[in-house]
Amino acid sequence: MEKLFSLGFNRRSVLGLAAAAPLLAATRSAVAADSLGFGELYGKYSVLGLEFSEKVKKLAGRQVAIRGFMAPPLKAEAAFFVLTEVPMALCPFCSSDADWPDNIIVVYLDEKQTFTQPSQTIEVRGKLEFGSWTDPETGFVSLLRLRQAEYGTV
């Protein structure tokens, strides 16, 4: 009993399991998910700024997989986080003067949760969505999102 108990209370292992579970689930749905890279998000710069690539437009509403880094969480307990192409220390937001940087994507999860330290590469799978949208709860505007997403370390 005590062994199981300590296993139950071992935060790391639970988190490990919790992190592994969605990955397993993701592996199962791997066939359905198209992989997407940060380089493929936008097409050309126009006078209006960035324009989404054909691939993004084509994949909108579909399940996609994308790899990146979890940015320092904006909210301690939230149903979303920001996925960046490079770790935050490398300044993903410095590169562009555009209103919306070309190397971030907002990831919405099914449930609110707290996060662990963001330092590892993660793979996120979720339904791709683009266009300006205001989160009614936080009031935040975002341009590119993954919905009903799951993530796991790679």
Partner: peptide, 8 residues
Amino acid sequence: KTIADAYK
């Protein structure tokens, strides 16, 4: 105003 603004 936006998430990107927050990070910027």
